[in-house]
Design a protein around this nucleic acid. Structure first.
Lengths: 238, 238
DNA sequence: TAGTGGTCTAGACCACGCC
DNA sequence: GCGTGGTCTAGACCACTAC
């Protein structure tokens, strides 16, 4: 474990434990240098991680102010997977694999992912049930030249877990798009929509590895009333 | 201007000009040190900015790979304001100020923003018209102890511009939430909704200054068919 | 083995806030 | 004036990639 990561985790845990409550100041960089016995740049790296994660706001001449953001809000999509969401929010839920098989890449899927037409891909469809109702439908397409095996029992839990821990893949970044789309017959069959539901929220994600290969395309389809996306964003100036 | 910002801007411009096309490598850190005559940490700061902005992916032992992301996609909400969106996407559009006045902070607004009940706030409602139709309605609430004057002709263009350039406020970060909400009579009156529209997309944002004061709460309400949110996200490991 | 990026150090000077 | 964070330097060692 790197030094700056250890310092980050230690400070994060202290913030979450209210040892450094909101609106208070963290110890100064000079104090942290002494506390952890490291150089200033190492302390600053840890503080920048805290800043990027939305824990603190740094102010020249003053110090690092602890922020007061709802840490119970979570993006329901994107790189934070359904399983993480469920673990953190303790929402009783259930996943059913509807379809899991290899397909040949269609021209349309090629358009989106860049994978060669007719090459192999996994198609995975899962129903996400909360309080007994299917309110999320996840459709995943995976590059079969990267993901050779896809055991159903792993798909039932979290495929990200499987990719990172079992296959050793390094997931690096993703592009996401959120739109509202009309309901079609397939969705009515696979989801517990109410008669008045004419639309669903669709979160489309392209997920990339460290070597910039795109290995996954996902459509996560949410019932309108169950959709919520929250985000923390910093002003990018320059 | 800081050295690392200059290097960032120079490399960004070269990437956008296709001097470093997608999938190619940037010059190595050692080469950039010589090119710009700076130390390695300064080069690395510039490269990290490019990474965070989604321009490159760095790989140990290999180099900085230029990514190929659609730079024409924009978050339609949040810290990127409507005016920036419009400038960049060249969508012919028009803004009409419906309401601009000072109000007393209600208990409900206090709940959201933390501003003292009965203190003064600006209420600003604007219609955003695209292709002749009001498809976005922006409701802004501003702390009047921070924003003392709010000229209507500035509100018509971009209030962020006014805050940053005229008032010298430093906008630091924001919390955003996206949900889908039922339509009510007020929205039917103020927006060009179609008869079948039963819902709208609401983007709620709390915007904060460098000193962690919350100075703005915004509800940006979008017609379903005109809403699109895109994002670039890095996997946060640790 | 040579070259790449990742981490870490010890020091310098500057800009800002607060008293 | 003192302490704070912001920028920058010169150098070290390590881990990874490619050949």
């Amino acid at each position: 474990m790197n030094k700056f990561k250890e310092i980050f985790l230690d400070l994060e845990q202290k913030i979450l434990a209210n040892e450094y409550p909101p609106h208070s100041l963290l110890p100064s960089e000079n104090q942290l240098i002494k506390t952890y016995g490291v150089s200033r740049e190492t302390v600053r790296k840890a503080l920048n991680l805290l800043r990027d994660a939305g824990y603190i706001q740094k102010k020249q001449g003053k110090g690092s102010i602890v922020l007061d953001l709802n840490r119970f809000d979570f993006p329901i999509s994107g790189l934070t997977s359904f399983r993480e969401l469920q673990d953190t929010q303790r929402i009783p839920s259930e996943t059913k694999v509807v379809e899991i098989r290899k397909i040949a890449v269609s021209p349309k899927l090629h358009e989106t992912t860049g994978w060669p037409v007719a090459s192999e891909a996994w198609k995975l469809i899962r129903q996400r049930r909360i309080d007994g109702e299917v309110v999320i439908l996840d459709k995943d397409y995976l590059d079969a030249s990267i993901i050779e095996e896809l055991p159903e029992n792993r798909a039932k839990v979290s495929i990200f877990d499987y990719f990172e821990n079992d296959l050793g893949l390094e997931i690096a970044y993703a592009q996401k798009e959120i739109t509202v789309d009309p309901v079609n017959k397939e969705l009515r069959d696979l989801m517990d929509l109410r008669p008045e539901d004419q639309h669903v929220v669709t979160v489309r994600s392209l997920v990339y590895l460290e070597d910039t290969r795109c290995f996954e395309y996902t459509e996560s389809i949410h019932r309108l009333d169950k959709f919520r996306f929250v985000d923390f964003a910093r002003r990018r100036k320059i």
